[in-house]
Write a protein that binds this DNA or RNA. Structure first.
Lengths: 189, 189
DNA sequence: CCCTCAAACTAACACTTGTTAGTTAGCGTT
DNA sequence: AACGCTAACTAACAAGTGTTAGTTTGAGGG
């Protein structure tokens, strides 16, 4: 159990505030108050407000990229790959509830790292789409517009951070299994 | 074809800016520039920045509430009701692409109207959940956690505004039909 | 020709923003 | 005792914030 540095603590608290009000609405004085110090003192630990956002978003985005790579390199069937992706999202979302909010809602406030983020997101979606297309070609999946399938799955998965905190007892495996049922097999009898 | 008033034009342009950068990051000077006038001139037409947000969010939220009421009062089967709800979201999202962004991302910046908005949203979700629960009881739907079903459908539907603009040719009926297939019947063979 | 009115303008306000500079206090090591 | 390090502080700045007051412009109707 590695001890959290002061910098990590600031970033963690910042992510929580960013989730509640959004990046732009959170001031350095808000963040300082939440940390119990003065705004200027924050700069002993961090470079800038922007830098906090960069750290939060890019670290999670890279985690997703890495996870997708593992899924792609596996020899699983299409449906099994999709289940792995669901599990990936449940895992990352449950471990980064606050950061996921910034990833979803504040990515446009990135500056120097904006293009890098967009390229990660783009590639992720391309890889996701390609898995679905292969599933349709091999008749594992129904012949529905693959973009609609991806959109439906991805928006649900990307919104997990909103919903997970509302569940008192969270069993990550249970949630992933239930989501697999609903997303892959549908809801009707 | 009713002519758009200057006030309506400002609100429409504001919604577009709010979608791109979020409510807090859009200044009255940004909005004025987009309108081709000076910031102070905006106040000949609108009361405050807050008021613009109120108008955007509350009008759409009430549209959803009204639509849900119609669905509830119908004598349709559960599955047919869910299809009506999908159609409702596709319709409202396609007609309010910009406003939907504020509804999803900037509702927390409401002040006087925050509680009213939250009550509308709460009731909407309760009604949605109740339809799903009835569907499970009457064996129209699989016996899966009804909250997960609602969460999955609702997050997909609420994110439509992100995705609709990316589709060159948008046929509202096509989109609703495809979403129904994916959300209700699943994606596997 | 004057009046009205919508819609723009300039100038200014009080306050908030992110950030910097320079300083101080406490603590462990030499 | 002196040093260096961490982490806080006060004070300040320049730019930007939403908003108000008062004024000007131009078009249309009596």
């Amino acid at each position: 159990m590695k001890q959290e540095t002061r910098k990590e603590e600031i970033i963690r608290v910042a992510a929580k505030l960013f989730k509640e009000k959004g990046y732009s609405a959170v001031t350095m004085r808000d963040l300082a108050t939440a940390m119990g110090i003065k705004a200027a003192s924050l700069y002993n630990h961090i470079n800038s407000k922007q830098d906090i956002l960069n750290t939060i978003i890019i670290s999670i985005a890279e985690e997703f990229t890495q996870g997708m790579k593992l899924v792609q390199d596996s020899k699983l069937s299409c449906i099994e790959k999709l289940k792995q992706i669901v599990a990936l999202h449940v895992k990352i979302a449950s471990e980064n509830i606050y950061g996921m909010a910034s990833l979803n809602n504040d990515w446009m406030h990135l500056e120097t790292q904006l293009n890098y983020y967009l390229s990660l997101r783009d590639n992720y979606e391309k890889d996701f789409l390609s898995i679905i297309q292969q599933g349709i070609e091999s008749s594992e999946l129904k012949e529905v517009n693959p973009e609609i399938i991806m959109f439906s799955m991805l928006t649900t998965l990307r919104s997990l951070y909103i919903w997970i905190p509302k569940k008192e007892e969270l069993n990550v495996n249970d949630l992933a299994n239930n989501l697999n049922k609903v997303l892959i097999h549908g809801i009707n009898i």
